[in-house]
Design a protein around this nucleic acid. Sequence first.
DNA 1: AGTGCGGCCTGTCCGC
DNA 2: TGCGGACAGGCCGCAC
Length: 271
Amino acid sequence: MPELPEVETTRRGVAPVLEGGRIAAVQVRERRLRWPLPPGFAAELEGSRILTVGRRGKYLLIGTDAGTLLLHLGMSGSLRIVTAAAAPGPHDHVDVLLRSGRCARFNDPRRFGSLHLVHGDPLAHPLLRALGPEPLTSAFDAAYLHARTRRRRVAVKQLLMNSAIVVGVGNIYASEALFHAGVAPGRAAGRLSHAATARIVAAVKRVLRAAIRSGGTTLRDYVNADGDPGYFRQKLYVYERAGEPCRRCGTPIRQRRQGQRSTYWCPTCQR
DNA sequence: AGTGCGGCCTGTCCGC
DNA sequence: TGCGGACAGGCCGCAC
């Protein structure tokens, strides 16, 4: 996905348009998302007022007086603000049309994204209930990460991508954060020193904040609410740089498969 | 309980 | 030019 910086960038872009708006209609062109949209999904939302646009991990939480719309962008999704009259293109699966004439348009080529309408406390929903802390809060600190890594044999990079440990960190930012922390991605989580976990926590926060400032990373599909790409790709140190010189020491960046995902690291800067 | 893997989709790229 | 296979930002659900 869209990892946390891309979702947060989207949230910031759509919130000023959606908050306070009244939903005139919801148009569903493709129900077969990660979880099929149930019949009546659109009708339940029509006529309701949007109150808030929040985020939990990589989920957008669009709070309305008819319930909370949970939106996940999956691997390839985006949520754009367009005018209601704008002609839909390929993979424009769902439109939320406002009485103002604006429209929030969900596009997702791979359809790994999802939408749920949740009644009651959205944080109690099964998809959100077991999520770990937000990385940009004080709940994610060295003591926490060190405690959660004990007796874990899994590689630290896979642990960082586990949303029960910390939310919002995907394949790009896990690799980038470990570079900045100076920790090799294959290190067993349970053997990390307290100092190493402290460096990892600081690096995760730093990388995510910097990526948000750049509007996220666009590899191919991701665009923000205005349809613009993110610019953090230029600031990546290791991701998708296999064979290219490390920007710090010049050693060629290495790549390998780890848990069926590509991992990138500098064998000199990361131990 | 922790770990590893299959599967969900479309699109692109690479080698033959 | 066509075709098969690998791969791509995620993550649930299952077997062990």
